[in-house]
Design a protein around this nucleic acid. Structure first.
Lengths: 242, 242
DNA sequence: TTTTCACAAACAGTATACAGATCGTTGACA
DNA sequence: TGTCAACGATCTGTATACTGTTTGTGAAAA
């Protein structure tokens, strides 16, 4: 049997469901409830939840339960600020250190065209976007940097999966990706840094107008009541929210 | 009784012991062994170890045991590179966003003088240094950034606790801290960014010559055999190392 | 009717029992 | 004497039992 045969798949599945907003931000749940949903006993559920909390996808309220981390303007702002700090430097290092194979794959990822209005294509684009940024981070050869950039993007993807900001600006985003990858490919660190900075700044501008209006300021997205698996909500879960 | 009455103190104590190199880098151990050492049962031990692994202080080898994360040149290099990326930006944001109270505390922390050659004073200085950098990160008002800075410094402190790089250069370090805090206090973001960059660059130069020679290149520091608590080492722990 | 307080349900935190994996050992065989 | 496979000790991964906390509820008192 494979290594970590229960925790690892459980963790991945729950994380995916949170990232894709399949598990509603702000929703409260218990260990038993999550275990029922994913067919796992408490021990692996606990371990997966601990990991997810460390990544900022779940909140733990000691002795009181869990909740899918709510999305907030503050969170989004912090994440974009983090991108602006890390991504340009990552691009610069990538320009100096990426292998030819990595450059080749970057080109493939950057040229992914998605069909505006097509939901499936849009979701694929989100994944591709993540893979591209993760690959750039990977090719810095700095594991710490890779971890941080990866975590930032995982958190950001939840906002993207709300489905709002990309529909009109997708093509511009692709063009920026191509420019960025070209700069990295030509081993021009300075240019790569500039492209990345510009890319993030544009993304910030685009999202400022579109995404903000979709989030209740400083609060959870959507109604946070009701349980995850359709069972009758107990009295405690109804009162767990802030 | 307090919240998380077993895991939290256990986690803190083990983390402290790892950071202070009380638990030797590279040393192998089992859950039961750690539980014996810190008077805890397996469940809290496992949880604490999972957290510490996520922070990069422990390595988990599935089905084979645990080890205190070894120190390596690669790790140190990655950490300094990370500092060079975010500390200048953190300083710049701090210059714009720190509260007067935070500025006041920064000044106190920056002026901590330590007595060269005094081991106790030196260890206090390491703590003070951490607190200063954490406070600067905190005053960016970006929680994500604060978390990352904290983790990077926690990891770096293990190298500092080896006790090598500071003894001759301590005063220079203090002077740099003071300049940095002055720049932040005067709300000069550009100047703060420069001071921080310079500070990290100097630190990198200083450590390059001193610390490197103390680490077996790419390998664990010190002999990694033998157990933690003086019990007779079992046959497995002797063969667990790479 | 409103307030208070004790009780009970539900839950997280912890301890422990159980199952399955790993690896050193040992003994048979070449 | 050297090699290899089966065994067993020991450990991690998982399930579950137990304990203590939190909080809603309802009865009793004001």
């Amino acid at each position: 049997m494979a290594i970590e045969s229960v925790v690892e798949p459980l963790y991945r599945k729950v994380r995916q469901d949170i990232v894709e907003c399949e598990l509603t931000p702000g929703r409260a749940f218990s260990e038993a409830e999550l275990g029922r949903l994913y067919n796992a006993s408490r021990t692996p559920v606990r371990e997966a939840c601990r990991r997810l909390e460390h990544e900022g996808l779940i909140r733990i309220m000691p002795f009181r339960g869990y909740m899918i981390a709510p999305l907030s303007v503050a969170e989004f702002h912090d994440l974009e600020e983090m991108q602006l700090i890390f991504e340009p430097e990552a691009a610069a290092f990538a320009a100096e250190r990426a292998t030819p194979e990595e450059l080749e794959e970057m080109r493939t990822l950057a040229t992914y065209e998605y069909r505006v209005g097509d939901r499936t294509s849009y979701r694929e684009f989100i994944q591709t976007n993540y893979q591209l940024h993760a690959l750039i981070a990977q090719s810095t050869r700095n594991k710490r940097l890779f971890d941080v950039v990866g975590n930032i993007h995982i958190r950001l993807m939840r906002f993207f999966y709300l489905g709002l900001p990309f529909d009109s600006y997708g093509p511009a985003l692709v063009a920026e990706h191509i420019r960025l990858v070209e700069a990295i490919s030509s081993r021009n660190a300075t240019e790569a840094r500039c492209c990345a900075t510009e890319h993030i700044r544009m993304a910030m501008e685009r999202s400022a107008s579109l995404l903000m209006s979709a989030i209740r300021f400083g609060e959870a997205v959507f109604d946070a009541n009701s349980t995850l698996d359709g069972t009758i909500p107990n009295t405690r879960s109804r009162t767990r929210l802030p």
